[in-house]
Amino acid sequence: MLNIADTLHRWCREARPFALATVVDVHGSAPLPVGTSVAVDEDGNAVGSLSGGCVEGAVYELCRQVLHDRGAPQRAWFGYSDDDAFAVGLTCGGELDVYVQRIDPATQPHLSTALAEIVRGRPAAVAQVLDGPDNLLGPTLSVLGDDHVAHGGVDGGPVDRAVADRARALLRAGRTARVDIGGEGDGCRERLSVLFHVHASRPRLLVFGAVDFAAALSQAGRFLGYRVTVCDARPVFATTARFPYADEVVVEWPHRYLERASVDERTAVCVLTHDAKFDIPLLRVALGLPVGYVGAMGSRRTHDERLRLLRQEGVTDAQLARLRSPIGLDLGARTPEETALSITAEIIAQTNQGTGRPLTLITGPIHRPPRPRRPVAVT
């Protein structure tokens, strides 16, 4: 849904009914992730893509059928058959589970509000019930803004509360996901499978050290969708002119800034100063926070000395195990731009729990379903 939010917002404002086809499960090397959507309106206009072309025709016809019948949502499975090379499926060998439902904006006005927030870049989540009792299929629920206020609903009771609570948790994590909720011992007794389309605020990339590597890293981070902050205690170096791709440039002692910064498990902290008077107090703070990535630049000799000083400051071995130092993947990087690529590649690999190894040396699917993030241990 998020991939076509601007068009859906316009259709909702125009009170134009449409069929929404969404990838709700992926197996193997499917090209696009769960939550990707195609929509078709009553005039036959289509927007979006589910497979880069492999199954678009079949999905389009299914959307037209759902719009015409005005009935319950439908499911379709698309895979590749070796027995019939011309079957509707994915030539890449993957499998898609697609959920198609009719959306009437007049009956779900909250959806237009949620899409407006998404188009403006503000946090919002939209929940669709995929599996459960027939009477719960079709309506959607939205959770909006940093205050996480719920709008719309599925049953007006315990199901709405359970769905809204999970939407708030996924908004904090910044993750679109399909989740099973409900059952005995839960506040929601109905067993449901729910897809949460989550548009969160941008994750943060905190770059400490106003050096040439920071300039390249801020540009790479901006390209990847991070909200980039460059911080350094030296005002002559920490200027907006030197870091045009940073969202903010802060002149302050790094550890003091980090102590009051808003961070979460999506936050990446990159320490590029390789100067003990900055590094040690900063890393002591960073390794005690629930951030997703902490990396520090420096040689192996610098790293060994850094570990010794951090242990003197009371940093535990469990905390030190989270430190990526020397920072980045082994790409043979030398220039600031190559080093920025090395660092961001490591951040991506850690975020998605990838190996960082060449795909030619790995067997199995290229596109793996995202695994739940492991809790960050801070002590």
Rank of each mutant, 00 (worst) to 15 (best):
S325Y: 03
V143P: 14
G174T: 04
C270F: 06
D82A: 01
V271M: 13
M1S: 14
P254N: 08
S299H: 06
Q74A: 06
D69W: 01
D317N: 06
G356N: 13
D160K: 03
R122D: 10
Q219V: 12
A167I: 08
V236P: 07
S299M: 11
R16Q: 15
R260D: 02
E61G: 04
T379S: 11
A72Q: 02
T360Q: 12
A169M: 02
L90T: 02
S49P: 05
T22K: 00
V251P: 15
G53V: 06
A21Y: 12
Y99E: 01
G132V: 05
L137C: 07
Q128T: 08
E265Y: 12
P281Y: 14
I280N: 12
A261C: 05
P336H: 08
D317Y: 08
K277N: 09
A30E: 07
L341F: 07
D104N: 07
R189K: 06
P109T: 02
Y226R: 11
G185Y: 03
L111A: 10
R168P: 03
D275M: 12
E338Q: 09
C63I: 01
A349F: 00
A276W: 01
V26Y: 00
L320S: 11
L309N: 13
G79P: 01
A340I: 10
V98R: 02
D69M: 01
R227K: 09
M1A: 12
Y245T: 09
L192N: 11
A5H: 15
Q219H: 15
C92F: 01
L307W: 10
R234C: 15
T273F: 10
V40A: 15
A19D: 13
G221C: 08
P31A: 05
A87I: 02
L111S: 07
Q353P: 06
R166G: 13
P326K: 09
G298I: 12
Q74V: 12
P336F: 14
A276G: 01
L192F: 03
C12Q: 11
L192E: 05
R242T: 04
R301K: 13
V207L: 02
G209W: 05
P372N: 04
D155A: 00
T339H: 00
R178Y: 00
Q219M: 15
N352Y: 06
A321K: 14
G157M: 03
V40K: 13
